[in-house]
Design a protein around this nucleic acid. Structure first.
Lengths: 374, 374
DNA sequence: CTGAAAGCGCTTACAG
DNA sequence: CTGAAAGCGCTTACAG
């Protein structure tokens, strides 16, 4: 039952392109029709009743807004939907179609700028491709078991991007058993499909930079060896150093976390050494920052007394008291490509792992030791 | 049809507390029963058929795990559910109960540590209270219109925490029309219910600190006056300064964004002034950091040549080249209390706005101007 | 093109 | 206590 009107009741409201096919209906009682002035949300049934068609017709009319429909009924339905600002219930369509258009993402924490940036890349690309993301933050769960993804599984995400994996992680096996596609992001895990930075190369770049300046007395500060990023960065660094003639003993590797505070603690360890190294490779920028802060307190000048290289190039790195030489990681890109890779898997293809290329950025923290052949 | 077994087929799998009431059924074809070796996820119907009860009995058995049930059927159902690692379909229960247990959160960006910390507080408290959160990041939408919450609305979130509101924001009105509860977080907006830091007080604290050191030539760098935080901090600062005898002219307020880069640009503006101020109040730490970096490049020593006060006390603030005096905000707490307040609204009560108290942290960036009466 | 029907996987009054 | 039925709001073959 449609009423065409010459004069819309609210002339100052924006009109849709399809014109004023039906009179405006507001939810504050202006409509002459019964049982519509309620508070419950508009559904397709509401629209169907209003327009006088079957609900399945409404559903079809609202699907994939093909630009140039001349079908009058479709236009009428769409205009009413616009007017009422109808938002279809995704819960219902998810249940019915068995496609949630939801991507789960597990992250360790978002206060770490590395993970926040990567996640932002994931979410942006997800939106672009018609998905929404749902987060599970380990930091808020203190649970590294596979159950950290349970809320995502219950929401029937179509796939999961695992940004917080570690050695011995049982989540991949759990998801495989459930036939839920997943991709490792940032960190790798055995033979699982992953999108990450080429951390072996990153480590090599750092080694070459320091070796070129003649360093042989070197310390490595590496956050958590149970995580692939730390492992690979250290391994690439040591191997390349060895190729270039310097063997770095295990005793010269100081473990640390991913934050400023643990960098400061690592620096204290270094200060206890009989002799300070001439160069330090920290496999994380925040850790490097902590080292810098603590050593400065001890009166040591970074870049002159000791060279320091970080990893990732987060925003503050170039602004530290001594601008930090670091290995720049394309974090946003890692996120976006993870999403693409996961979508491939969801669509039934067999994606391959991706290694994105890092780049050395030389700054003042290694300035006094500029490469001989630069 | 239940089969009790003396010897479970996989003795090395963890057993639930209720004992080995039924023989273990795996999904790799060991079960003698038909149509269960498929790939589709386990549903309550699966469990019901397996145990030989009606699906409604399964649903009841799995609800609110009352610890001490002696009901044998219930225990059997629960054990089977455990064994199969059954995760009920939240999509279905959301549709049926019309309660999603989902909270929407709109944020401007998560690479801003202020918003990341606040969101972490929200999510943690949500988990504690049985909710999950769903994000909508304006940074990934370039859309400040109410439609930025559409995906949350379609997912039928029970309420929304708005962390990215601004002057003229139409989202609150949209949500009110839809009867979706919401709370402003961090930022305020007219008479809307909000959980925020007392920014007027924060501004006053900064003013008192600088006034006590005798400053009268002051510049204010404020990120975006369309946002309540910037407005209130500046207003509190100016008012208190006026009470203490110093009028700060509009011409001494330099607009800026929320990041390091815009702080640097603001500093360039200051450098163009005929005379540098003796003190700067930046209503955001990252902005303050940018100012510090740029002024240092120009050979100006923060803390001696010019005093600098920031706002929020993010982690790096104490580690800047000159440790930053700032107004510490309880961001995690703001997040947690926002969630509580929203849940109050969801439960039909009428929550009131909350103002959390900030605190001044004096550091070296204002050291040379230590308060006379400190 | 549109209508009618069935069903996604749950939950919950209602009987028994 | 358990079973049977209805229904949440959609979508989609199937007829016409």
């Amino acid at each position: 039952m449609i009423e065409h009107s010459e004069a819309p009741s609210s002339p100052n409201r924006a009109q849709s392109d399809s014109g004023k096919l039906i009179r405006e209906i507001t939810d504050d009682g202006e409509s002459p029709m019964e049982d519509t002035r309620d508070t419950s949300p508009v559904t397709m049934a509401t629209l169907a009743k209003r327009v006088g068609v079957h609900i399945s017709t409404v559903s079809r009319a609202l699907q994939e807004p093909r630009q140039h429909t001349t079908n009058k009924t479709t236009l009428i339905i769409r205009e009413l939907a616009d007017q009422l600002d109808f938002q279809p219930d995704a819960t219902a369509s998810r249940l019915r179609t068995r496609r949630s258009r939801l991507i789960g993402v597990t992250v360790p924490s978002l206060t770490d700028p590395v993970h926040a940036t990567t996640y932002e890349g994931i979410d942006k690309q997800a939106l672009r491709r018609g998905y929404s993301t749902m987060l599970s933050m380990s930091a808020n769960l203190d649970d590294r078991s596979p159950s950290r993804a349970n809320s995502l599984i219950r929401s029937r995400v179509e796939g999961i991007i695992i940004q917080d994996t570690f050695e011995g992680d049982l989540l991949p096996a759990t998801l495989r058993k459930r036939h839920i596609p997943y991709v490792m992001c940032l960190r790798k895990n055995d033979d699982e499909v992953s999108v990450a930075v080429d951390d072996l190369l990153g480590g090599r770049l750092a080694a070459e930079h320091l070796a070129a300046a003649g360093h042989t007395e070197i310390a490595i500060i590496s956050p958590d060896s149970s995580v692939s990023t730390g492992r690979d960065r250290v391994e690439g660094f040591r191997r390349r150093m060895l190729e270039l003639g310097t063997r770095i003993d295990d005793s010269r590797i100081v473990p640390a976390g991913f934050d400023i505070a643990s960098g400061q603690r690592a620096a204290e360890t270094l200060l206890d050494w009989p002799k300070l190294p001439t160069a330090i490779f920290a496999s994380n920028d925040l850790t490097a920052a902590g080292i810098m802060f603590r050593l400065r307190e001890a009166g040591i000048t970074i870049g002159r007394d000791v060279a320091l290289v970080g990893y990732n190039d987060i925003e503050i790195s170039k602004h530290l008291p001594v601008p930090l030489t670091t290995i720049a990681s394309p974090l946003h890109e890692v996120g976006a490509r993870s999403l693409d890779t996961l979508v491939e898997a969801i669509e039934g293809r067999t994606p391959r792992s991706l290694k994105l290329t890092p780049q050395l950025l030389a700054r003042e923290s290694t300035l006094a030791f500029a490469p001989v052949n630069a």
